[in-house]
Simulated assay, not measured.
Amino acid sequence: MNRPRPTIKDVAAQAGVSKAAVSLAFNNKPGVSETTRARIIETARAMGWEPHLSARSLTTGSGAVGLAIRRPSRQLGLEPFYMEFISGMESVLTERGGALLLRLVRDADEEIRLQRHWWKSGQIAGSVLVDFQQDDPRVPELARIGLPAVAVAHPSLAGPFAALWTDDGTAVGDAVRYLAALGHRTIARVGGSARLGHSVIRSTAFATAVAGLGLPEGRQMATDFSGAAGARATRTLLASAVRPTAVIYDNDLMAVAGLSVAAEMGLRVPADVSLLAWDDSQLCRLTHPTLSAMSHDIHAFGSDAARALYAVLGGARAVSHQAATPVLTPRGSTAPPAR
């Protein structure tokens, strides 16, 4: 017969203290002497009891980190970027005894209300903020309430928050120059929402790179990052009077959809059109042909974001820093255009 699991009440009775004293000891709070703290912890270990991590984090804010993402739940499950990013965050949270509060929201206003509730109610110690827009309304509102946070965004968008970002402008330029070196003259881009800060940076860098190489102005199409939107944009591009011979996608999900559309329209990849994905993931290595990509260690990016937030929570000043720039990984989906 299984013995019942010991409770905080059992530990308190065995150690000869109150339940409040046990809580103070395990949360490293003042109110108990070091001798008493050591006795409580030793008693708990001997009994096989430890505080419930999620309950402690949610009630004290000592280890819970907030993350709100503006994506439909169905799309989030298909998008490799956030799955890898969250995995990277979790690897650090597990090391630190923390927990992640994840919520999907519809817009910035809903996220502001959510973050304010999390912070005011003590459910989180701080947040990692993502998907920044130009003049993002979250910045003044969350800074005003004193929320400790790290912004996954270029410093120009992050306001007073510590920023963590990749040099998307340089990466886009590298992608365009690579395709031009293969001989492509008509290059298009399928991007994310035009309201997102990193989309604006990539769009500007794309136009600058194309113009700098003396190429015709490349067509750029904004989407919501979904496979369906990527497929629609690809059909539009490949059915146009001046069909691009190469297309750059802002994520791997849209690039995979683009590969399917090319086959649907009777076009060969890369003989008739070259395709280049962003971020890179297992998806890019499972297609036929395999997708060339601007590779980025997203797991490490998520880990870096969590560590940066813990540094802020530890009292460090908001120090922004740049993560590794995405690098080109050529595979089977890019080649010189057909003569």
Rank of each mutant, 00 (worst) to 15 (best):
A153D: 03
A153M: 03
A153H: 05
H154T: 05
H154N: 08
H154V: 01
H154E: 06
P155I: 02
S156N: 10
S156Q: 12
L157A: 15
A158C: 02
A158P: 03
G159E: 01
P160G: 10
P160C: 00
P160M: 01
F161H: 13
F161D: 00
A162S: 08
A162F: 01
A163P: 02
L164Q: 08
L164H: 10
L164M: 03
T166P: 00
T166K: 14
T166N: 14
D167R: 04
D168Q: 09
D168N: 15
D168K: 08
G169W: 03
G169Q: 01
T170L: 10
T170G: 00
A171Y: 12
V172H: 11
G173I: 03
G173N: 05
A175S: 15
A175K: 10
A175D: 08
A175V: 00
V176Y: 09
V176D: 04
Y178T: 02
L179I: 07
L179Q: 08
A180N: 14
A180Q: 11
A180Y: 13
L182R: 06
L182T: 10
G183P: 03
G183E: 00
R185M: 02
R185S: 14
T186R: 15
I187D: 06
I187G: 14
A188V: 05
A188I: 04
A188T: 11
A188S: 15
A188L: 05
A188C: 11
A188K: 12
A188P: 01
V190T: 13
V190R: 13
G191M: 02
G192P: 02
A194W: 09
A194Y: 12
L196D: 12
G197A: 06
G197D: 04
H198I: 01
S199D: 07
S199Q: 08
I201S: 06
I201P: 06
I201N: 01
R202I: 05
R202W: 11
S203V: 00
T204W: 04
T204F: 04
A205E: 02
A205L: 05
A205H: 11
A205T: 09
F206A: 11
F206L: 01
F206N: 08
F206S: 01
A207N: 09
A207I: 01
T208N: 13
A209V: 05
A209H: 00
A209K: 03
V210M: 15
V210D: 00
G212A: 06
L215K: 09
L215Y: 10
L215V: 05
L215W: 12
P216W: 05
P216E: 02
E217L: 07
E217H: 14
E217W: 00
G218K: 03
R219Y: 00
R219A: 14
M221A: 13
M221G: 00
M221N: 00
A222N: 14
A222P: 09
A222W: 10
T223I: 04
D224G: 08
F225K: 11
F225P: 05
F225E: 12
F225G: 07
S226C: 10
S226Y: 13
G227T: 10
G227A: 15
A228Y: 14
A228G: 11
A229D: 11
A229H: 12
A229M: 06
A229W: 03
G230P: 07
G230M: 07
G230D: 07
G230T: 08
A231M: 04
A231W: 12
R232C: 09
R232G: 14
A233W: 09
A233T: 12
A233C: 08
A233L: 03
T234Q: 10
